[in-house]
């Protein structure tokens, strides 16, 4: 059934997102250090993709529509602006 498939789609997204939330919280609360740091970054990126895929229904294959391109372009703008700010001010901070 199409209806059940869509419901399951949301449920899968929810379970994945929950897992990707529990893992970093647990690691930061218990282990800490480098492992937690990398797990944190990885889970955040994965959970971002899970939300876009399962809740916002963005498709990652083909060029069906422009919304994925828009996300990627916004990502580029953010990378330049955030990366640039952090780079310049981090450099200033280190020289102070």
């Amino acid at each position: 059934m199409e209806n059940n498939k869509e419901f399951r789609h949301y449920l899968i997204g929810f379970v994945l997102a929950t897992l990707l939330t529990v893992i970093p919280f647990t690691l930061v609360a218990t282990v800490g250090g480098k492992i937690a740091f990398f797990a944190l970054i990885l889970s955040a990126i994965l959970q971002l993709i899970v939300h876009l895929r399962y809740f916002l229904h963005l498709s990652f294959k083909g060029q069906q529509r422009e919304d994925l391109q828009l996300v990627l372009f916004t990502g580029l703008i953010l990378l330049i602006m955030i990366g640039g700010s952090v780079w310049v001010l981090g450099d200033l901070y280190n020289r102070m």
Binding site: V28, G32, L40, I41, A44, L48, H51
Partner: peptide, 17 residues
């Protein structure tokens, strides 16, 4: 909710590491 992922990861969990 997507923005919140970035906030709890970067601000809260990242801050406590």
């Amino acid at each position: 909710d997507v923005v919140w992922i970035a906030i709890f990861s970067f601000v809260f969990l990242g801050g406590l590491l």
